[in-house]
Simulated assay, not measured.
Amino acid sequence: MSPNCSPEAHSPDNDCPENHCPQGWCVYIILSSDNRLYTGITNNMVKRWHAHHGKQGAKFFRGRLPSRLLYLEPQEDRAEASRREAEIKKLTRPQKLRLIEPQADIDWHRKLNL
């Protein structure tokens, strides 16, 4: 771990590898405060999570807050992440919940220090 990655220095803007998706880009699913599922892409999940809590995030989160990160899926690049995001957004809620199921025991908030 580099010096910038100490717990004391942890912030959404630093270069700690755990802030970023393992292969550069990820598709993610967040449960919102009104129990809706939001799907998006990012190359820095920690920074994106904080953006969703502030006014810089998706319009979807105006009037509601992100509650829990449920799912992360690494992708090769931004194009693949966008393609996969579009696929996931076409799924029904039950289909999305089945997709999330294998990651149900992963505490992404603890793992990523959200």
Rank of each mutant, 00 (worst) to 15 (best):
E101R: 11
P12V: 02
S67D: 13
E76S: 08
P94S: 05
M1K: 07
V46T: 13
S82Q: 10
R78M: 12
S11G: 05
V46R: 14
E80C: 01
A86D: 05
I41D: 02
S32H: 02
Q75D: 09
R68K: 14
D15I: 05
H53I: 00
H52A: 08
E73K: 13
N113A: 09
E73Q: 15
L70F: 04
T39Y: 01
A104E: 15
G54M: 00
R83T: 08
L97M: 15
H53A: 05
A79R: 13
L31N: 11
D15G: 10
L97K: 15
V46Q: 05
S33F: 01
E8L: 10
L114Y: 11
A51E: 12
W108C: 02
P102V: 03
R68H: 12
P66H: 04
L112C: 05
F61L: 07
D77Q: 05
Q95E: 14
L114Q: 04
M45T: 14
Y38P: 01
A79E: 10
P102C: 02
E87C: 09
Q103T: 04
Q103H: 14
L37Y: 08
A9I: 08
L72W: 00
L91Y: 07
R36L: 11
K55R: 05
E76L: 06
N19V: 12
P22L: 14
E8M: 03
F60I: 08
D105R: 11
S2L: 10
C26Q: 11
N35M: 13
N14T: 11
R48H: 01
T92I: 06
A51K: 12
H52D: 04
S33G: 09
W25F: 14
E73D: 09
L97V: 10
N44V: 05
Q95Y: 01
E73W: 11
N19S: 13
N113K: 11
H52N: 12
K90R: 14
R64M: 06
L70M: 10
K59N: 13
L37T: 02
H109Y: 06
I41G: 04
C16W: 03
A9P: 00
H20I: 06
P22I: 15
P17V: 15
L65F: 15
Y28P: 03
P102L: 06
H20V: 03
A58E: 12
A51S: 14
G63Y: 05
G63S: 07
I100V: 12
R48L: 01
L31H: 12
N14C: 08
R68P: 09
C26G: 04
